[in-house]
Design a binder for these strands. Structure first.
Lengths: 322, 322
DNA sequence: ATATGTAGTGCACAAATGTGCAGAACCCAG
DNA sequence: CTGGGTTCTGCACATTTGTGCACTACATAT
């Protein structure tokens, strides 16, 4: 590999990207075949002669809403993406991307990291680029489901985050819902599982989604609970959940028999974690988000403008009624 | 134009350039049509959300040859592009590009700039990006030819350089060869032409190519000279020219009748310019380059490794023979 | 209510780009 | 010089991207 290449690569790259000639035209001008040019370009990209940089929207976040959230709910911080997104797909991706970019700052030396699951979390993982050797350990915050969808494979997500961080992860080989309270006790005291569950007591950071309907959890979850559980949930007026732990719009934990069978970090434990980042958006989730905020289950919220406005409006109404 | 766009643009750009999804795939994931994605990407590029940067080969020039040139011929500087280029097309483009990138430093505040012409100079102009409002004036260094080829349209080249610099230019409306010495006198004293010709006396910078054969100048030039002129040139053992002024391999100006008809900056004038940059490469030009260096007609040389080695070799031979 | 312009959409088609493969060229050890 | 490896080349073909156009939507002026 002579140095000729470097100059040639640069030249070809320049003609292609700056003068916007086609590979064909460049080939003709240089007396080389189109294919050669094509390969030179590929090489130029590989070797970093061509660098494609994406400029993140310059902090165009809704500062006003962010500080209002912070004040109203005693958060440590918030990031509100401006705009209204009709498409849930788009919103999820944008929140995931936003979260991915905030992550390095949010992690900042925290070692024991708990990770929830869900589509937004999955999107976030798609965009993380960190690589740096972080001395971090990632654990799932609740058990798994037989559900095949990748966004609910808690261990896989933890593994991906750990890989992106260059740290380690712990897998949990337990179901999110045990068959009975006794089964739960047996499972969580199993020597393979206990160490993971125990870590929930001493996390430095938790990254969670906010759920708004048991329907979200998919058929596997529903299959695991009884008619009575369903009735209980309805009666308790569950507005949403964090780590599968349900609460009402006022932030009160729902008292459910189901709770005794849940293998998931508890809301009390969550409140003791020094930093909890919740990522959630979309009007359908507004009540769930409000409940989580009122209950103090998160310390940092990543959401979107339209949703946050609606959440604050709902909160105001509730206040005036009270 | 809402801020929504910015986030969406960034997202789409990221999916396209970093995750290397196709526009089709992105469309499917986001629930938007391929065409929409296409247009978003175009917008992202236009708005600078996507920034494509080319990293110039990190100064991989032949330092040793450069300093040898400098020492041997008393140059103020030299840049030698490494490698051997078989294709003249490629070499010309690479030299042009190299020169274009050096230009800002070479100009550095110099106001009166003289410009030669030729294919390498043309390539250089293709790559200049400067835009800055330079208080510069660009003049051609010799008259024009009826030749249609764009690389010999002296005024057009001067105009292009001036445009790139954001400065002014002067056009010369005179032929490079007048019909007779008397005609030359008449023409150069014409009030439209004299001011331009006079500027050659007080240039701050000249940028020239080095010619190696009258054949290079094209048919229009040849048509303008007689059989006798051709014989003269052969007898004088012309090795090359700068600004159409011919010299031998030893750097001696050729004494030609033709000279009295040339409307071009003289070699004496050229030697008085504080900075002369010559751009030339290719083994066929070696003798011409050597003559120019020996004659002191340039103060800065931009060339390629193979040629420079050959030039230095030729120079060594000459020295040992003498 | 009716023109009238402006912006956005999807489509059919055209152009450009990317890829697996088969053969050529090269290079070195035996 | 010969066989076996690697690299380089061009090509047919498949994929991906870009574009002019006709059509819709919506807002503003008449």
């Amino acid at each position: 590999m002579t140095t000729v290449n470097d100059n040639l690569l640069y030249l070809v790259a320049k003609l292609y990207y700056e003068q916007e000639l086609t590979q064909q035209e460049i080939g003709e001008q240089l007396g080389l075949s189109r294919f050669k040019i094509q390969r030179l370009l590929t090489k130029a990209r590989e070797q970093g002669v061509v660098r494609i940089e994406l400029v993140p929207p310059t902090d165009q976040t809704c500062k006003d809403l962010e500080s209002e959230l912070q004040r109203t709910f005693g958060l440590q911080g918030a990031v509100v993406v401006p705009g209204e997104y009709r498409s849930e797909q788009v919103l999820r991706k944008i929140l995931g991307l936003t979260a991915a970019e905030l992550l390095p700052d949010l992690i900042a030396g925290r070692r024991k990291i708990g990770l929830g699951c869900g589509r937004t979390i999955l999107e976030m993982l798609d965009h993380i680029e960190l690589g740096g050797r972080q001395a971090a350990t990632v654990v799932p915050l609740f058990g798994g489901m037989e559900n095949i969808e990748p966004e609910f494979q808690v261990n896989a997500l933890a593994q991906r985050l750990a890989a992106a961080l260059g740290g380690e992860y712990r897998a949990i080989y337990a179901p999110v819902i045990a068959g009975s309270a006794e089964a739960r006790a047996t499972i969580t005291s199993d020597p393979m599982i206990k160490p993971v569950v125990d870590m929930w007591e001493s996390l430095d950071l938790a990254i969670v989604g906010i759920g708004y309907s048991i329907a979200t959890y998919g058929s596997a979850f529903i299959r695991a609970i009884s008619e009575k559980d369903m009735d209980d949930i309805k009666n308790a007026a569950a507005a949403g959940d964090v780590c599968r732990q349900m609460f009402s719009i006022t932030g009160e934990p729902c008292q459910l028999d189901l709770n005794a069978r849940l293998i998931a970090m508890s809301l009390e434990q969550l409140k003791r974690v020094p930093m909890v980042v919740a990522i959630a958006g979309g009007k359908v989730k507004a009540k769930a988000i409000l409940g989580a905020l009122r209950g103090g289950y998160t310390k940092f919220l990543i959401s979107d403008e339209a949703t946050v406005r609606y959440v604050l409006e709902l909160h105001g109404e509730g206040a005036s009624r009270a």
